[in-house]
């Protein structure tokens, strides 16, 4: 389609619109200026807004995430890029100790966005493929967003920038150039904390987010050919979670598969399962099942990565198993 843009361009468009809308918004990160970032998300922003609002930083994640918090206290709205989300671990202390507690303990606002390319299926090996969202789910005070479509990527980055708290914005690099969409006209904002039904169905629900939304949709298509009707719920926001949407799909299909690319133990599926158990136990016709990555660091070689990460065939098998319960 003529006015279709990629997931990556949608994020850029969202940042660009917010920078145009409010002079407090500025970007910081490694190689984001003239180079436009390792994946080119910020390409063109330096030329448009100048080096006072698009800052190349030294390789100091704790430094510039901390500096973003300070600027945010003063009314600025920093959008910080991590070259790969795997390097968020270098700023873990700043985010969990300083940023997440600032409002609660000191009444200091931290309206900032920390964004970066995440996720696997790209042969990136153990340090360029991570999904560290669960490490932050356990930190009250942070918000976490992880979109799967270009429209949501744009609408959610805009919401994240306008949010009065710190939002971690995960950008699945597998989707950057593979997923495209036509942006709704006007000021397109998608609210944080609202899930989206990506496919309607009646026999079972797959609750997921990010790249595995696309795996779920592919599995649903295959299962439809067998006469199985699968609903796919795309969470979009992980913190806060959309309990209403989760309950609605569970109570509609009575069978639930939780799917994520992150490793199984301690992954978000555990939290989802607990919530479903607490609110909708009586509506379940089968135990809640999980498909997730094996509990190993993500290896690089294609056969290894393919084995560790969830694949469409796994989802199909698991849904059949749910239906046979």
């Amino acid at each position: 389609m003529a006015n279709e843009i990629t997931f990556l361009e949608a994020i850029r468009e969202g940042i660009d619109e917010e920078m145009a809308r409010s002079p407090e918004v500025f970007c910081m990160g490694e190689d984001i200026g003239a180079y436009g970032g390792a994946f080119k998300v910020t390409e063109g922003l330096l030329a448009k807004y100048g080096d006072a609002r698009v800052l190349d930083t030294p390789i100091s994640e704790a430094g510039f995430v901390g500096a973003a918090a300070g600027a945010a206290h003063m009314g600025m709205r920093p959008v910080v890029e991590l070259q790969f989300i795997d390097f968020i671990s270098c700023a873990y202390d700043m985010l969990t100790n300083y940023v997440a507690t600032a409002r609660y303990r000191a009444f200091l606002p931290c309206p900032m966005v920390v964004r970066g390319p995440s996720g696997g299926y790209v042969r990136g090996g153990p340090f360029h493929s991570q999904n560290p969202e669960a490490a932050f789910l356990h930190t009250p005070g942070l918000k976490i967003v992880y979109p799967s479509t270009a429209e949501d990527a744009k609408g959610l980055i805009k919401s994240a920038i306008r949010d009065d708290d710190c939002v971690l914005f995960f950008e699945h690099k597998y989707l950057y150039r593979r997923v495209k969409g036509v942006m709704p006209a006007g000021d397109h904002v998608v609210p944080i904390g609202k899930a989206r039904v990506a496919r309607e169905g009646t026999d079972a629900s797959i609750i997921t987010y990010a790249a595995t939304v696309h795996k779920a949709l592919e599995a649903a298509e295959q299962l439809a050919a067998e006469g199985i009707s699968v609903e796919v719920l795309d969470l979009r926001s992980l913190l806060p979670l959309d309990d209403e949407a989760i309950q609605a799909t569970v109570r509609k299909t009575h069978r639930v598969l939780l799917l994520h690319e992150d490793t199984r133990t301690g992954g978000i599926a555990g939290e989802l399962c607990a919530r479903i158990n607490e609110t909708s136990f009586a509506w379940l016709d089968a135990p809640v099942l999980r498909v997730a990555a094996a509990d190993v660091p993500l290896p690089y070689s294609p056969p290894l990565e393919d084995y560790v990460l969830p694949q469409v065939a796994d989802v199909v098998r698991a849904v059949r198993h749910l239906l046979a319960w």
């Binding site: 070259q83 042969r123 360029h128 950057y176 056969p303 694949q311 469409v312 065939a313």
Partner: peptide, 17 residues
Amino acid sequence: KAVERHERPASWGTSGG
């Protein structure tokens, strides 16, 4: 085997550094 149906599209590979 890694997966029943090998899913690797031709374009797979990191596009970043």
